[in-house]
Nucleic acid binder design. Structure first.
Lengths: 343, 343
DNA sequence: CTGAAAGCGCTAACAT
DNA sequence: ATGTTAGCGCTTTCAG
């Protein structure tokens, strides 16, 4: 007497609505109604169905549901690196908004690699996320055109999209850097170094622009040796800082172009006897205790704003793509208020 | 002459393999073969298919594929809070392993709420993730039994599962705390305070156990006033620390039970004239500059280990569920080596 | 109030 | 080398 079960399902061996229906002695559609809370089922019938669901350990297969309904209630987020303390809060903010809209969030890190960004974004599209939030690693997003045309709501955050017209949410990188450098100038500095990420990265470019603008505002020339863009690993940054701080005309202040640069800069400056002023872009944990003056951007607000925009679109809003720029804020904690040393 | 297109699909209006087949003048299966890189297609045919794909902007619908194949190549991660710097690296490590196995990662935060954890985990199961990594918020995981039986590989990280037999990857919370407190004892401290998370949380309990063990090892009694478990918001922690540090017999050292407690403790102690020793559980950014002695656990290793275990199971390994405990490491940076003040 | 039938887009199994 | 058929588990439509 072999137990001739239905052919092995690939989901381990999960019961389906059909199984539940058979067990409860009702039709398939009735089970569907109960599971989805649709009206038109007798309390008694519903009870029998619920019992069968419980007994079988049934859980609706959302993959099948998606196939039929066309909406996944899932949004994707492609960011640079979840291990970077800047992106955790951003991701979390997106998640909270998604949750409020009954959606789930799928995350992926591009590791700052344009190819990987594309691969990830398209994989998410293949899974038919309803919407996509992208923190660009690359500068060309035309590969997303078919997806956007097909209805995938898309918002770019932190850096603008390349080659397509889309919603973008940014921090005021230019204005923030300008204000930070102006702050140093106001405290008497004339030779100010600028260290930031690789020049291909939008935020680095914008912050450099802000730096130059502030210097120009103050009528100060910028020596080539004062500007260093490149990878933000500690070695490279320490070396760049070391170079600017030595020689006959060393800088008396540094502007650090992002959180990782700031951290390394703090370490480098901690080992010096001559005080050097420092302002960093991005707030960092414990910066208050270390007395580091920063230009803070609100990562959570970036994420929230982007997500809200995304869901507004998903709910049918038909506005033209827009760029939203969020303010930054200077937090003076001491390191930016150090006067120039020597002459 | 109305353009009688196929009925509006719900995916915006995405082309399907059928559309591609029609356009390329081939059969559906041929398109499938090309898309999936299966052999047995003439270069010429393949070329025509690729052209049609390009022209139509076709992208395979993985939802449909999943329905057929039964595997989603997606794993879920339920953690506490992505904005917590401890979980970013953990999540990233899981992601890297998933990526190496061709899988995508879906993240969700439970916000330390057991109900939300369950809701999230089950939502992921409904989407038929192949596997699940859970950082428990709650203490009862029997709700996952049907899922695990149905074949969802499941690994718990950072805290053990409740009520079910499953793979678990933990840090040595007990041993780490014991070593940290022993370190303080070795530097002459007799009155040592312990501040940690709520007592319902496994890591807090274990670390408290380690604290008590170290004190007992040293033949020291523990006054009730020296132990404070509760929420880790700055106000609560500052108050607890303040209480322990005042009175006739104040503690001369603090053991901070997690990263958030440590941060607040550093702030509180920075405002004191009398030096108080501090060892914190979890390393924190810039702790080196602040000279904070910590018991470091390797968040990335936790994630990696859990993910590797998960994928080994997904690849058919049939080992019994096991608990893996990862070592912690004491990093002396100064704050833990301060001798007791006064008498 | 309930159920049978069709079909979402894809892949597996089997023709040709 | 290519195409045809069935069906994954669900929702939609329409008929009882």
């Amino acid at each position: 007497m072999a137990d001739i079960a239905r052919p092995e399902s690939r989901y381990g061996n999960r019961p389906t609505m059909k199984d539940v229906a058979a067990r409860a002695g009702v039709g398939l559609k009735t089970v569907s109604r109960v599971v989805n809370g649709e009206p038109g089922v007798t309390p008694d019938t519903e009870h029998r169905v619920r019992e069968a669901i419980e007994a079988l350990g049934f859980r609706r297969n959302d993959s099948a549901r998606v196939l039929r309904k066309g909406r996944t209630a899932t949004v994707g987020l492609v960011l640079e690196d979840l291990a970077d303390p800047f992106y955790g809060p951003l991701s979390r903010a997106v998640e909270e908004v998604a949750r409020a809209h009954g959606a789930l969030l799928v995350n992926g890190s591009s590791a700052e690699d344009p190819e990987r960004e594309q691969e990830l974004a398209l994989a998410l599209c293949a899974r038919r996320v309803d919407g996509l939030i992208v923190i660009p690693a690359g500068g060309d997003h035309r590969y997303l055109e078919p997806e956007i045309r097909a209805g995938v709501a898309t918002v770019f955050v932190d850096r603008p999209a390349g080659g397509i017209d889309a919603d973008v949410v940014l921090s005021d990188n230019f204005g923030g850097a300008r204000a930070g450098v102006a702050h140093l100038v106001a405290h008497g500095h004339r030779r100010i170094g600028f260290i930031a990420d690789r020049p291909g990265i939008h935020t680095a470019k914008e912050r450099l622009r802000g730096y130059r603008a502030a210097m120009e505002d103050a009528g100060l020339d910028v020596a080539d040796a004062w500007v260093s863009l490149g990878p933000t690993d500690p070695e490279r940054v320490a070396e760049a800082a070391g170079a600017m701080l030595s020689g006959p005309e060393p800088v008396t202040a540094l502007f650090a172009g992002n959180n990782r640069v700031t951290v390394t800069a703090v370490r480098v400056l901690a080992g010096r006897e001559r005080p050097v002023a420092l302002v960093g872009f991005d707030d960092i944990e414990l910066a208050d205790l270390l007395g580091v003056t920063v230009i803070a951007q609100d990562a959570a607000a970036l994420g929230r704003t982007a997500a809200e925009r995304l869901f507004r679109r998903l709910e049918g809003a038909d506005e033209a793509p827009a760029t939203v720029v969020l303010d930054t804020r200077l937090i003076a904690r001491g390191s930016g208020e150090v006067p120039p040393a020597g002459g």
